[in-house]
């Protein structure tokens, strides 16, 4: 029996780990849904006004950002409270590169990714080495310090006024002035980033990260050195967060210290938890939703968005411990399981 059955997909798709078998039946459905979503995303600028297109662009950027955080929180089991630091560093880097050197889209975005990864690697080893609750505290501290730096190094970052005057993205020298073109650029980079993250998650490396999350002691006895993998995951996650930050800078063309701050980190964490940590697609969906809600209802809340954020946090912990993806898993598990 084991011979003719095709290899069970090892959560490659980012489906919940425990549902590998039912997932196989749903595979076609997932593929179809994915293709429909892609098609819809591709034609957004043709049917939506520039303002709406801009909102969808931001949703895409935050979806990538949330997926990078999910690599840490969901896959590796490292709950970071300061992930916006790498996003912010990426955004400032892209902005500064565009202002002082070249606004070429790929250049700024790649510089942002490298900066995010390097910064995460430079500081992350402390947090990763200490582990446990220290990881939470240290990522929070690192994030807050980056935030303070963004504010105090005003000669470089523009301080609390933000870094403004970022030129529009150029592709092969031509500035993208229409919201639609910027959107397609963002969409392309986000899709590539998501694909890369998906590959990382479904690779043997991703399997090791999941193993560390579930049982670090056993991984050690199987011959893996968890520190190296966690550290690598931290740097990779920082790189993709930086990439998202770079896109963000090109998109909104102003970077504020709050983009590196605690509230942004908290918002992202909420997206990951709401969406369902460890699934990649869940957090991406969660982030899109959170950004949509923030941008739609934010103005009507009179600047008290964090109040809503806080209440949702408290509710989410009790009501949706495994996020939307957890709900999907629940529904799947209720359907009778066919023999493997």
């Amino acid at each position: 029996m084991s011979v003719e059955s095709p290899p069970v997909v090892s959560t490659a798709d980012g489906a919940p780990d425990t549902t590998a078998t039912p997932w196989r039946r749903n595979r076609r459905l997932t593929v179809v849904l994915g293709l429909v979503l892609l098609a819809v995303l591709a034609v957004v600028p043709l049917f939506v006004d520039p303002f709406g297109t801009n909102t969808v662009s931001r949703m895409l950027v935050f979806a990538l950002f949330a997926m990078s955080l999910d690599l840490l929180v969901g896959l590796t089991g490292l709950p970071s409270l300061g992930h916006a630091a790498w996003f912010g560093i990426g955004a400032y880097t892209a902005g500064l590169v565009a202002i002082h050197w070249s606004a070429e889209g790929l250049v700024t975005v790649l510089a942002a990714a490298v900066a995010g990864a390097v910064a995460a690697a430079a500081t992350g080893w402390l947090a990763v080495r200490s582990g446990g609750v220290f990881f939470l505290m240290l990522t929070l501290a690192i994030g807050e310090l980056v935030h303070q730096l963004a504010q105090s190094l005003s000669s470089v970052t523009g301080g609390s006024n933000g870094l403004f005057g970022i030129p529009s993205i150029r592709i092969a020298g031509t500035p993208l002035t229409l919201a639609g073109y910027v959107y397609w650029f963002v969409l392309a980079v986000v899709l590539l980033g998501a694909l890369a993250l998906w590959l990382v998650a479904s690779s043997p490396f991703g399997g090791v990260l999941r193993g560390i999350r579930d049982n670090e002691a056993r991984m050690r006895s199987l011959g893996y050195s968890p520190f190296r993998y966690k550290y690598a995951a931290f740097a990779i996650a920082g790189g993709f967060a930086g990439l998202a930050g770079g896109l963000f800078a090109g998109l909104v063309r102003i970077v504020n210290p709050s983009d590196t701050g605690f509230t942004t980190s908290a918002l992202l964490l909420l997206a990951v938890v709401l969406g369902g940590a460890g699934t990649l697609w869940g957090p991406a969906l969660g982030a899109a939703l959170v950004v949509l809600v923030r941008d739609t209802f934010g103005p009507t809340l009179d600047g008290h968005g964090p109040l809503l954020l806080g209440l949702v946090f408290i509710a989410a912990v009790y009501v949706l411990p495994r996020g939307f993806a957890g709900l999907a898993g629940l529904r799947r598990r209720r359907t009778p399981r066919s023999p493997a």
Binding site: G77, L81, G132, P306, G310, F313, I314, A316
Partner: peptide, 26 residues
């Protein structure tokens, strides 16, 4: 939340802190 991952507690107290801070600013 005692038997749940430490992250859940962090999220809860984070939520409380956001709510308290916002109520104070209101």
């Amino acid at each position: 939340l005692a038997r749940r991952p430490i992250l859940d507690q962090a999220l809860l107290t984070l939520g409380i802190s956001l709510v308290v801070a916002e109520v104070l600013s209101i």
